[in-house]
């Protein structure tokens, strides 16, 4: 099983070399144009986020009365005040809690969803069609009607006010979204790969570890990114299951700054919202390079 390693960069270079110098200039011009379009459109996309960040540096009183993008007066007060958190628990704690939930969820989803996806995507077994349809059906029922029965289960297990209801489902491949995602990627892989591996004497488990998992990396990365971000952003289940302020997450902390009928700390809310974007942005920036063409190989060594 020797499959060719290629790099997109090398092919691009090869084709570029053959072109003349004038062509080279138009190519550069075109690249510049592409940058301008991408940046321009990106700014449009980012405008709301930029507004959020800039407003987080405005004094609380003028956030809504002077909605311009550039603050006339800058203040870090919102960050200082916001960070203090609630009821004596600082946002540092909330960030740590959110990070813990997100990391545990990522691990769970990576392990169990890829296992289920391998079974559905590659193996043949009895009742496969039935299980597969059931797997899909579970995400078609709106969440709100299963909430109460699920809450009953967790409360019988005495898991209310713990992270189990938030993390355990991820270790039981509860997110059909990721199972289907990985199934699609696995099915996109040429079957000759595992056929030749079978001939070489690999068991199905070995195929999973040695062939499927390495080739599944782009899907695993996507799963990791999404799971992290979605667990991070999830508000409803955190709100339902967590009551102890020491267990609160970033999203719960942010929502707690907000009370439409009372006095919302908008400055703190915007500051902490902006801050809460930081870890997930870094995670994304760090992981997205796995999608860069030319770094990894497209086949096996």
């Amino acid at each position: 099983m020797n499959i060719k390693t290629t790099s997109a960069d090398s092919s691009a270079n090869a084709s570029e070399m053959s072109r003349s110098r004038t062509a080279h200039r138009t190519v550069r011009l075109r690249a510049l144009l592409k940058h301008i379009v991408i940046i321009g459109f990106g700014l449009l996309m980012l405008y709301p986020v930029l507004w959020l960040i800039s407003s987080s540096f405005k004094p609380n009183q003028i956030i809504f009365s002077s909605p311009g993008l550039i603050p006339q007066t800058w203040t870090f007060e919102n960050y200082v005040n916001g960070w203090k958190g609630l009821q004596g628990v600082s946002f540092g704690r909330f960030f740590a809690n959110s990070a813990f939930i997100s990391v545990m969820s990522v691990l769970g989803n990576l392990v169990t969803c890829s296992m289920a996806a391998y079974a559905f995507g590659r193996l043949n077994f009895r009742f496969k069609g039935l299980w597969f349809s059931l797997m899909l059906v579970t995400i078609m029922l709106p969440y709100h009607v299963v909430l109460v029965p699920q809450y009953v289960i967790y409360s019988k297990l005495e898991w209310i006010n713990t992270y189990f209801p938030l993390i355990l489902p991820k270790w039981l491949a509860h997110d059909s979204f990721f199972i289907l995602l990985m199934v699609q990627f696995i099915r996109g892989l040429p079957k000759e790969l595992d056929e030749s591996a079978t001939i070489d004497g690999c068991s199905q488990r070995q195929i999973y570890f040695r062939i499927i998992l390495p080739l599944l990396v782009p899907a695993l990365i996507s799963t990791a990114i999404f799971t992290f971000i979605w667990s991070w952003d999830d508000f409803f289940s955190q709100m339902i299951y967590l009551s102890d302020i020491n267990l609160f997450t970033v999203q719960l902390g942010i929502r707690s700054l907000f009370d439409p009928s009372g006095q919302s700390d908008w400055g703190g809310l915007l500051a902490m919202s902006a801050l809460s974007l930081l870890p997930i942005t870094v995670i994304f920036l760090a992981f997205q390079r796995y999608f860069l063409e030319g770094i990894a190989t497209t086949g096996l060594k």
Binding site: M45, L46, W51, I229, D233, R255, S273, L277
Partner: peptide
């Protein structure tokens, strides 16, 4: 990487309260 992140950041906001204001 930067561009991708720029285009992805809106999705990071999810359904946060901040979105409603913005």
């Amino acid at each position: 990487g930067i561009y991708r992140t720029v285009y992805y950041i809106p999705s990071l906001l999810g359904g946060s309260v901040a979105i409603a204001i913005v």
